[in-house]
Design a protein around this nucleic acid. Structure first.
Lengths: 225, 225
DNA sequence: TCCATTCCTTGACGTATGTCAAGGGAATTG
DNA sequence: CAATTCCCTTGACATACGTCAAGGAATGGA
């Protein structure tokens, strides 16, 4: 169990809650509950009522949808400091997707009713939630755009650039998940992803080394994007 | 120019603003401006700063993204009473998509800063906006799910069912847009859509008649979905 | 260390869907 | 009413991608 002060630091530093008053952060910590998940454990299921939202303390979580035929599409993967389960917070609807931990994960859980009350009582929190939801909307719009408008190679390039920016270097990036999972995120199959990696290697764009990808021609990658 | 009382009725009856106090509706009307668009006119462009959001009084609007190669993906089409342009309202970002009128259209425009102020001052409005954004999130999640997890025929079936429910009958539906546009909405090409319609006709599922589609076997359509 | 998974890659193949081209029919406009 | 434009359909073809199958590499647990 992590300490209260530590929780406060986490919340105050998160994208969602940054800038909120000390008092409000305190309240948020008060209504939150810590939860633990093993690798591959279900956090919530599509079609079930949602009881609140989550903020990741440590670990990695994927949000996805699965079809009856066994296909899977990952919407996003989240890490420490990122919230998820926001979609149905202010809506009386069942969860539109599933959430699963990809590694052992610790989260803070915020129950719906209590958070709703806090939101009504504190306009700054309401604004935070509004901008949090908006951010998700933007991400999904971009996702649809890339899925519908571009091919898988293009999406991989874009993802490599995203990783490069996130990791703050343009010479190489580390894949933070198994390739099978990356395929789900990019909306393709592991086999196809493998081939695309192979093609890009042959073209001299990248050099693979397990989970480390050397970006030999970053500028060309940018153009490809 | 429509009258103030008419505007009030519209707002109070819209999905977004229903249930808000008379006073608040008044304020909303006060900050809104009426705008007119011809058929095919651009309302806003991807990549440009957003200055507020819109509520449709009359007409039809599509929200879409276009690629450099000329491909287009429609996210949604909206009609009277529906809001759009919400995504970047509470975010300092450029518009992630374009909006164009599909027919001559009248809208109410709500400038960003004034609406923001109203939202901060009136928690019920904040809740309305929160649930409005959440609804859009759900729609996009479903859209990604259908694009990534199912084929075009499946998506057409789902759309016909959607139209049937919207139009309140299970025997036939009217397509409310040209097939070319429907193809963009379903994430395919007019040619492919044509073929799928032909296939479904051959299988005895439907009977085409211009913009009217007879649903000969609604239950099978549901299964197909 | 060994065994059992899981992960990854590669090949061969099938298929859905996009592309290009042509023609007919409907609708809009002068 | 004529004429132009747009819309829709159909055919032939190309291709990206998914599927199935097999083998090898890496990983993790006993």
């Amino acid at each position: 169990m992590i300490e209260r002060t530590e929780k406060k630091t986490l919340l105050a530093g998160s994208i969602l809650f940054q800038g909120l008053s000390n008092e409000l952060i305190n309240r948020l910590v008060s209504i939150s509950r810590q939860k633990q998940y093993c690798k591959g454990e279900t956090i919530f299921l599509e079609g079930r009522p949602s009881h609140g939202f989550y903020l990741i303390i440590q670990g990695q979580v994927k949000i996805f949808k699965a079809s009856a035929e066994g296909k899977e599409q990952t919407f996003y993967t989240f890490g420490p400091g990122e919230p998820f389960g926001l979609t149905t917070l202010f809506l009386n609807k069942k969860s539109p997707a599933c959430a699963t931990s990809m590694v052992p994960t610790t989260v803070l859980f915020f129950p719906k009713e209590k958070l709703l009350q806090l939101t009504v009582d504190h306009p700054p929190l309401a604004l935070s939630m509004l901008s949090g939801l908006s951010q998700r909307l933007c991400q999904l719009v971009e996702k649809i755009g890339s899925l519908a408008l571009h091919g898988a190679p293009h999406r991989l390039s874009a993802h490599l650039i995203y990783l490069a920016e996130q990791q703050g270097r343009t010479d190489q990036v580390f894949l933070d998940m198994p390739k099978k999972q990356l395929a789900c995120l990019l909306g393709t199959t592991p086999e196809n992803l493998s081939r695309i990696f192979a093609d890009m290697s042959n073209e001299g764009l990248i050099k693979m080394n397990g989970k480390c990808v050397q970006l030999l021609r970053y500028r060309k990658l940018l153009q490809h994007k």
